[in-house]
Design a protein around this nucleic acid. Structure first.
Lengths: 210, 210
DNA sequence: GCGATTCTGGACCATTTGGTAAAGCTGGTC
DNA sequence: GACCAGCTTTACCAAATGGTCCAGAATCGC
């Protein structure tokens, strides 16, 4: 649970509560301004704690960001990890799309935090991407390729398929401002996206029974 | 050509050269770090000019950013504006996708500058979006809707169609770092994307002759 | 209830950052 | 080739920012 260098006894109630407050505030601030654009003062304000107090709980600005990124990574990979070799191929992929879209709706800040990090060259996340994400990506593209080879899905490049799914689903969180303006502040653009994307990927992936 | 408030005589050769240098350097820096993360010193370094000299040519950090955003906007809308009511509907849209993809390949920094701005809530661009982009968007979604009504394209929501095109094409510039890692630093991922997206949107949009 | 421990915030600090003043240099024009 | 507007730089600022110190306040274990 802890890293070997620090034995660290169990965190107290207050510790737990305040760490959570800080991380929530930091998520808000980092996701909106990016790492370098965010300030400890903003995080302090948003969390309701004083700046020195924040530094009592975390080793510094970077430590907060890293913590955020680490916990994010797991939740981020989860929907893809859940895509199972055992289900119906088309339905598995459509269900995955559904989950991703759901995350855009429920956790737009997390999506933007991630987007900010990648946009800026993933300086503090490259290792994560090269191990965790890459492994999962290779595994799932291979699975999809197998499905295609078996004629259960129409053939196309599985890598670009995943890119397209990521791009289209995360778009609604990352470019929310734009989407909101262009859809005349419609209450829930993601609802319409759901139908549209289901239709699009269904047409793309349904195999021809020639 | 100039705004009415400032008559301003014609800019000199040096003026032209240095403004260009500064804007190019600023594009590099802003697109990588976002507005708040970028510093004048970085821009000074990248442009080979001193910081005060930069402030001799522009009124401040914000003025540089705004200038960049303004010139970007035109080039950004251009590919969509070129989509003509007179051509073959399917081919018009596929050509548009091709143009957008080409821009991701040729101008990734511009794409990231734009992405950064929207991600952070479009603080200095909202007016632009609400006028220029919105107008064009409405015009083109209406055009696509007409094509669909005429049975020349399979029906779907034109707004989400455009969102999907933007998302999938810009993804290769904005998330280049991730794409690069996952495709094992393949020389030109956009090449593969070209085929994939052409196929995907063709399947989506080709009308059923039932 | 009380001492030990954990938590909290006001004052402070060094560095960075956007920006300015003003003196010196340059290049085009007569 | 001397002048002068236009360009460039050195030396600064004031504010913002990440971070520290330390004394006092809350909380916990008993």
């Amino acid at each position: 649970m802890n890293d070997a260098t620090k034995p660290e006894k169990k965190p107290s109630r207050i510790q737990l509560r305040n760490r959570k407050r800080i991380l929530d505030a930091a998520l808000e601030v980092f996701s909106q301004h990016g790492y370098r654009g965010a300030t400890l003062d903003q995080i302090a304000d948003a969390s309701g704690l004083s700046k020195p107090n924040i530094l009592y709980y975390f080793d510094g600005k970077e430590a907060i960001h890293v913590t955020l990124l680490n916990t994010l990574m797991e939740n981020w990979l989860d929907p893809l990890a859940k895509m199972s070799p055992d289900g119906d191929p088309l339905e598995e992929i459509l269900a995955y799309i559904h989950r991703k879209l759901q995350m855009s709706r429920e956790f737009p800040r997390e999506s933007r935090l991630f987007a900010n990090e990648i946009l800026q060259g993933a300086p503090r996340m490259k290792p994560h991407l090269e191990t965790g994400l890459k492994t999962l990506f290779d595994e799932k593209t291979a699975l999809i390729q197998r499905w295609m080879d078996q004629g259960k899905l129409a053939p196309s490049d599985p890598r670009h398929l995943l890119f397209s799914i990521w791009a289209t689903t995360q778009h609604y969180a990352d470019f929310e401002e734009q989407v909101s303006i262009l859809t005349d502040r419609e209450t829930d653009p993601v609802g319409g996206a759901e139908q549209f994307l289901d239709n699009m990927f269904r047409k793309l992936l349904t195999p021809q029974q020639s």
